[in-house]
Design a protein around this nucleic acid. Structure first.
Lengths: 191, 191
DNA sequence: GGCTCTACTTGACAAATATCAAGAAAATCA
DNA sequence: TGATTTTCTTGATATTTGTCAAGTAGAGCC
């Protein structure tokens, strides 16, 4: 559970060790087989998790094609947050891209966090501000950058991902077709 | 201040009337002249506001051009939230597109909200979840829709805005050039 | 009312990206 | 290992979007 503590601290800042230990007990270590779903679009999402190992893909089926919104790597967080908080149908599917270990927490236990840790809602608020800010960055990249520039930026920030997941998913996540991605990749080989 | 109460309730849900009244006293009604700045990029943002009347444009100067991230209309919220929460330099400029009335609150008073209203951090958390969700939608529109589809969606959701602000700003916010916007607009006249 | 400035439109053309189709490479699995 | 499936690449071509340049329309100002 040492990793879990580290994840929580990285997201929420330093927490008193006693409390942190307690928090750890609310999460459950689970394993998802490759291809297995953590969440199906349309269901109510009552869980959230940290990825311990492996990869989760967050996507939505849009007619024929699938739009990949995000890929969660170890240390990251995954859930459909609007569904989780407001009990509305989830928009996302969340599926394991490989055998994946996660620390998962159910809504019921999540609610206990608020009582267990002093100032928890405030910590969670700051966490959400950071998430929001990341989304602002992504929007900005679509307003101001070409496909190639988005590729380069993402590659600089996540080089490892490029040999861990099918590239078509990264292409989708960056808002381009696999073909365009492939051509840009060829041009940028060795960086 | 009746409007302010309504805005707060629309964002944060129903609050005990006593508390709501108190909350109202923390905001100050201000007027920005057309062209005046509420926030300059690079400064620390220590205020947030609701727009009472008029329009605020959130944008960033990117070399020669300006990227408009958002336009805040009456009832909406405006700030650089990451700067406000973490005291880091603001990325956005926020400028009045017309004479604009706002209800503004300083960081110092904002901190009092937490003490004044029971469960405030929780309410703010849910507010941020909604903001995050809106950003997810916007990202999705860039991953899955053409410029014309984004135009149509935005027009359906904000028809009034099209005769209130320079269209080039809407174009930028939707991730296209003014020329492309103009041509799409022509094709879609009367809807 | 005419001047000036800004915003919008339009056309011609260029560049970026998507689409379709085929084949090559890589991963999976029996 | 060999067969099968999936993913990636490549070429030819179409479509979308951007760029540049010019002109028009409209708002604000004296």
């Amino acid at each position: 559970m040492a990793e879990l503590s580290a994840y929580i601290e990285s997201y929420f800042g330093v927490i008193n060790p006693e409390e942190l230990k307690q928090v750890g007990t609310l999460f459950r270590l689970k394993t998802l087989k490759k291809g297995e779903f953590y969440l199906h679009s349309g269901k109510i999402c009552r869980d959230m998790c940290f990825v311990k190992s492996g990869l989760l893909r967050v996507y939505v089926a849009e007619g024929e094609r699938e739009i990949t919104q995000w890929i969660s790597t170890p240390g990251y967080f995954a859930t459909d947050i609007a569904s989780f908080m407001f009990e509305i149908p989830a928009r996302w599917n969340i599926q394991a891209l490989s055998d994946t270990e996660i620390y998962s927490i159910h809504k019921t236990e999540h609610q206990q966090l608020g009582k267990m840790v002093k100032g928890w809602p405030e910590l969670e608020k700051l966490f959400l501000v950071r998430c929001f800010s990341i989304m602002e960055d992504r929007i900005f990249s679509h307003l101001s950058m070409s496909a190639e520039e988005r590729y380069q930026l993402f590659f600089a920030q996540n080089p490892e991902l490029f040999n861990q997941v099918p590239l078509q998913y990264i292409a989708s996540m960056l808002g381009m077709t696999p073909e365009t991605f492939s051509r840009i990749r060829k041009k940028n080989l060795g960086n």
